[in-house]
Structure formats: structure tokens, C-alpha cells
Amino acid sequence: MATKAVCVLKGDGPVQGIINFEQKESNGPVKVWGSIKGLTEGLHGFHVHEFGDNTAGCTSAGPHFNPLSRKHGGPKDEERHVGDLGNVTADKDGVADVSIEDSVISLSGDHCIIGRTLVVHEKADDLGKGGNEESTKTGNAGSRLACGVIGIAQ
């Protein structure tokens, strides 16, 4: 089992970053940390998408990683996509320092995120509470600013 993974985020604009993942036990939580720069100040949706395909930019990554066919939600919700990591918060300089621990994603097994795409979005994720159909699919997080395929790390 891989215990570490990394993702280099890039987009068409100024947004870029490096996100690290570490899972010490196969059924334990995954620590997610790193930094994203070039964002507007505020909240930005942060999700693992189904495919590791960036051939047409971030759009070819498909929908959120959702092997259990659930509705979109927040990272602490029972009803959520596996890939729903909530929001990252950018400061006035456009930098989001990421520090998350998640017990639904994994670096092995059915919820493995390796080979899938991590995406940072234009807007805040409403965590499935926006009151419309799009909220239950995407959290109304808007366009995909930057993305990268999650790969095994040393």
C-alpha cells in the first residue's frame, strides 16, 4: 500500500500549488496538507474528481469521485461524495494553506484517490446545502481553477 501521495495543481491562470497526502494505516485517516497560491481571497471548493484525465484541462477530470452514488455534502457529513473535501481558505495575498484530515478518502482500496484528479474551484462549496439540484452534485463551487493528478510519492 502506498502511504504517501502528492498532487501538483496547475491551471490556465495564476492558480498553482502542491498538496501532499499521507496515510499511516490502511483504514486510518489521510492527512492532506500543502499550499495553493494565486486564488482570490475567501473560500474555494476542494474536491477529488473521478478521473485522472487532464487532456482537456480540468474539465476532463469528470464529476466528483463518488463510488457510493451519494449526494454532495461537506467533509463531516454522512451523506457526501468520497471526493468531497470541503473548502480551502485563501488569505488576502491569495494563498491557501491547506491542513485537512479526512477519514473517507484513502490511498488504497475502494476509496483510493491515487490516479484521480484534485481540483480547486472558483467559488465556495455550499456543502450540499444550497437548496438546488446543482448543490447536491457540485456544491455550486463554480469553474475549475486548477487541477492535477494525484500520484504515489516516496
Rank of each mutant, 00 (worst) to 15 (best):
A5Q: 05
V6N: 06
C7V: 05
L9Q: 07
L9V: 12
L9I: 08
L9M: 14
L9T: 15
L9K: 00
G11A: 09
G11I: 09
D12H: 14
D12M: 11
D12F: 06
G13V: 12
V15N: 11
Q16T: 09
Q16W: 12
Q16V: 10
G17T: 03
I19M: 15
F21E: 05
F21Y: 07
F21K: 01
E22M: 14
Q23D: 05
E25G: 12
S26C: 11
S26D: 15
P29C: 15
P29Q: 09
V30M: 10
W33K: 15
W33F: 11
G34R: 04
I36M: 10
K37A: 10
L39Q: 14
L39A: 11
L43W: 08
H44A: 10
H44F: 09
G45S: 03
G45N: 00
G45I: 02
F51S: 02
F51I: 07
D53S: 03
N54A: 14
T55M: 01
A56G: 09
G57A: 03
T59K: 03
S60V: 01
S60D: 01
P63C: 06
P63V: 05
P67V: 14
L68C: 13
S69I: 15
R70K: 12
R70L: 15
K71T: 14
G73N: 07
P75H: 07
P75G: 11
P75N: 05
P75R: 12
K76T: 14
K76R: 14
D77F: 11
D77S: 14
E78V: 15
E78C: 15
E79Q: 15
E79H: 07
E79R: 12
R80D: 02
H81K: 01
H81E: 03
V82D: 13
V82K: 11
G83C: 02
G86R: 02
N87Y: 00
N87M: 09
V88W: 05
T89K: 13
T89Q: 04
T89G: 05
K92M: 11
K92D: 12
D93L: 12
D93F: 14
D93N: 14
G94W: 13
V95R: 10
D97H: 06
D97T: 14
V98I: 03
S99V: 07
S99I: 13
S99L: 08
I100S: 12
I100V: 14
E101S: 11
I105K: 03
L107M: 14
S108Q: 15
S108H: 08
G109D: 13
G109Y: 12
G109S: 07
D110C: 06
D110H: 10
D110G: 11
H111I: 14
C112V: 12
C112G: 13
C112D: 09
I113L: 10
I113K: 00
I114G: 04
G115S: 04
G115Y: 00
R116E: 00
T117E: 05
T117I: 03
L118V: 13
V120S: 05
V120M: 11
V120K: 01
H121R: 00
H121W: 01
K123T: 08
K123C: 11
A124S: 11
A124I: 10
A124K: 13
D125T: 01
L127K: 07
G130L: 06
G131I: 04
G131L: 06
N132W: 08
S135M: 02
S135V: 01
T136Y: 07
T138W: 05
N140K: 07
A141Y: 01
A141C: 06
G142H: 07
G142V: 01
G142P: 02
G142W: 05
S143N: 11
S143G: 08
S143P: 06
R144E: 00
A146H: 05
C147V: 00
V149I: 12
I150E: 00
I150C: 08
A153V: 07
